[in-house]
Amino acid sequence: MTFEMFSAAHIAGLVVFVLVMAALILFRARLREPALNRLIRVTLAIVLLGCELSLQASYFMEHSWWIGSLPFQLCSLMVLISAVVIIANHKGFYDVIFFLGSMGALQALLTPNLDESFPHFRYFEFFIAHIGIVAAAVFILAVERYRPSFRSVLLAMVWLHVLAIPAAITNIVTGTTNFMFLARKPGTASLLDLLAPWPWYLLQLEIVAFGIFLLLYGAVRLFPESEQAKGT
């Protein structure tokens, strides 16, 4: 079955997303207990890594693996980075998974670049991976009491460009890949459809990304100070 935006399969994925985020927020105090905290972080890391490994394995099994299957899309990179950061509890990289993870995965969940629908494997892998990315971001915010500063916003912008380097190089070398949608807009409907044609939408994306980071920063600042700890 071909995936359709806001179909029953899409809505079901979004409902699961809301339930997972609500559980992390509602049970945040209990999730700070050392044993349970460690269990959740390890479980989340395993789920994220499992998603990427199973996706790559599916390409090999279907004889469809090629250079375009490398994990250079923003969300693929965030799956790997979030898994490492969340299990190591490396607070120095909280800025990366909170801002970049939230921005990329939330857009992906709202406007999925997905061909296969329920019950195909890639439907489950897509939603589990992207929900997992946002779960990692919400976990460090609600449970670990991460509080970004304006410097965090600037660091997130820097990291966005750093992660775009291998994607851009691969796009140029192959001439066919479209990692991070730097070479062209995706074939499916997305927020990029509202922007100018290539390459001008890349400049507009700089403004959009910075604006989203500021919105995330402002939203976190609305939390009571007692619920947050100073970030990096």
Rank of each mutant, 00 (worst) to 15 (best):
P186R: 00
M180E: 11
L160T: 05
C75L: 03
H161N: 15
L114S: 08
P197N: 04
I207E: 06
I131R: 02
N113Y: 04
N178C: 00
S226Q: 14
T174Q: 02
R122C: 03
L100W: 08
D95W: 06
L74F: 07
I165P: 08
A142P: 04
I25E: 00
A105C: 02
A29Y: 03
R32M: 12
L100V: 08
I81A: 10
I212G: 05
L160R: 14
T170P: 04
A164D: 02
G13F: 03
L31M: 14
P71D: 13
Q56N: 13
L55I: 09
L109S: 08
H10L: 01
R32S: 04
M103W: 11
A196F: 01
V173Q: 14
L110W: 06
F124C: 11
F17D: 10
N89I: 00
L39A: 15
R147V: 03
L215T: 10
H120N: 14
N37W: 07
G132V: 10
I86E: 03
S226D: 13
I46A: 15
L163V: 13
Q56H: 11
I81Q: 10
I11S: 06
D115T: 12
A22T: 10
G104E: 13
R145N: 00
G68T: 06
Y201L: 08
I133D: 11
G104C: 05
E4M: 10
A22V: 12
L74R: 02
F60E: 09
N178T: 01
I40V: 15
Q73Y: 12
V208W: 09
C75P: 07
A229W: 06
I140T: 03
P148R: 07
L160D: 09
P119D: 10
L106R: 09
F118D: 09
L74K: 02
I11E: 09
S69I: 04
R32K: 13
A135Y: 05
M61R: 13
L222Y: 05
L31E: 09
F124G: 07
I11Q: 12
I212N: 03
F124H: 07
F93N: 05
A129S: 15
P119S: 06
T170H: 07
V96E: 02
L14K: 04
E125F: 01
S82A: 11
A23W: 11
A22M: 04
L192W: 00
Q107F: 07
L222R: 14
M1S: 12
F223G: 01
F150Q: 11
K230R: 12
A167D: 09
I140D: 06
A9Q: 04
R151T: 09
H161K: 13
N89Y: 07
